[in-house]
Computed example of a mutant assay.
Amino acid sequence: MSLSLRAQRILLTGAAGGIGRELARELASRGARLGLLGRTDASVASLEHLVATQRMDAVVIQADLTDAAARRAAVARMTQAYGGLDVLINLAGVLDFRFFDEVDPAMITRALQVNVEAPMQMVREVLPDLLDRGTGRIVNVGSTFGSIGYAGFAAYSASKFALRGFSQALRRELDGTGVGVTYVAPRAVRTAFNPPAVHLMAEKKMMHMDEPAWVASSIVRAIERERSEAYLGFPESLFARINGVLPSMVDNALRKVLPDLARHARSTV
């Protein structure tokens, strides 16, 4: 099956980030009508400039996705602009790289609020209308670390495991309704989302990083092909599958890099 994105009304959270901007460009190039969400004044200004320079058919919406009223207002603004929406893409997220005994407790709360609760609540906000019309798609952007619990990313991994489980359960729940669910799991991406220590680890070949434009185009392909799941980047996509069946193999592989990884994680301030 193939989904044409022309004239599709797509609400994209996290639109101001490195992947989000590239994703907005990809979607706009296919003729989609976009609602681009940013949280801060700076992100909104950046998105407005992007829309103007790229001549996108888009509205820019400021919203803190951890606030229920802001979520409702964002969906209402999209409905006001385009009469509703056809696709929700939950991209916004937060990440903290450090060993768990050093994690700020407030960061644990924020990771769960932004990476898990906000996407679930956004889905809950738009789902009744999609079900009434019998069509639409929910796209949740997770992570390879939502399948592989990785040292230094305990809170992040926990939140992405939860998002993956939610996506799987929701997809099965919506079977036969006309509303589809796509879960996309990139590996590390070369953006400011990742702290300097993670970029340094990539330079030392301790992990791989992809360019945001490639990730964005891969997300769009997954949507167009109406895929249930898409794991991006090899060999991480393979390790994600192996970890589900033989986690001890992944334990042994990661044990070898743990001392170096610890030096990077514990040097993060």
Rank of each mutant, 00 (worst) to 15 (best):
F97Y: 12
P259E: 10
A197C: 06
M107G: 15
A32Q: 00
D210C: 04
S237Y: 01
S237P: 06
R172F: 10
A81F: 07
R263W: 07
H264G: 07
P195W: 11
N243F: 05
F153Y: 14
K204W: 00
S218L: 04
E125P: 04
G93L: 06
M122G: 03
E224Q: 15
W214P: 03
G244A: 13
A7V: 12
L12M: 14
G134Y: 08
E22M: 12
Y82M: 05
L200T: 01
R225A: 12
T13M: 06
E48R: 12
D132S: 15
G83C: 09
L238R: 10
G136T: 11
G84N: 12
T135E: 15
L200K: 09
N140T: 02
V220H: 04
A63Y: 00
Q8P: 08
A32K: 01
A216D: 08
R25M: 11
G136N: 07
L36Y: 05
A262Q: 14
A24H: 09
N252W: 05
P128L: 03
Q121N: 08
V184D: 03
V189A: 13
T40Q: 11
V257F: 01
V59K: 07
I108H: 01
L11C: 07
V245I: 10
Q80T: 15
T144C: 10
A74L: 01
R39Q: 14
K205Q: 10
L91W: 02
L170V: 04
R71Y: 06
R98M: 10
L50Q: 11
R187L: 15
S143Q: 00
R30S: 13
I10V: 15
A16P: 02
F99V: 08
V250C: 05
A185W: 00
G134E: 13
A74V: 09
T177G: 12
G176R: 09
D64M: 12
T144E: 08
R221M: 14
L200A: 14
P247V: 12
V257Y: 05
D101W: 07
T66R: 14
G14Y: 07
P105M: 08
F99S: 12
V184F: 05
G18C: 11
T66F: 05
M1C: 06
Y231I: 09
R266G: 02
L127C: 04
G31C: 13
E125W: 03
F100K: 01
M107C: 07
E173S: 13
T66K: 13
Y82I: 02
Y82P: 02
I242E: 01
V245Y: 04
A188M: 03
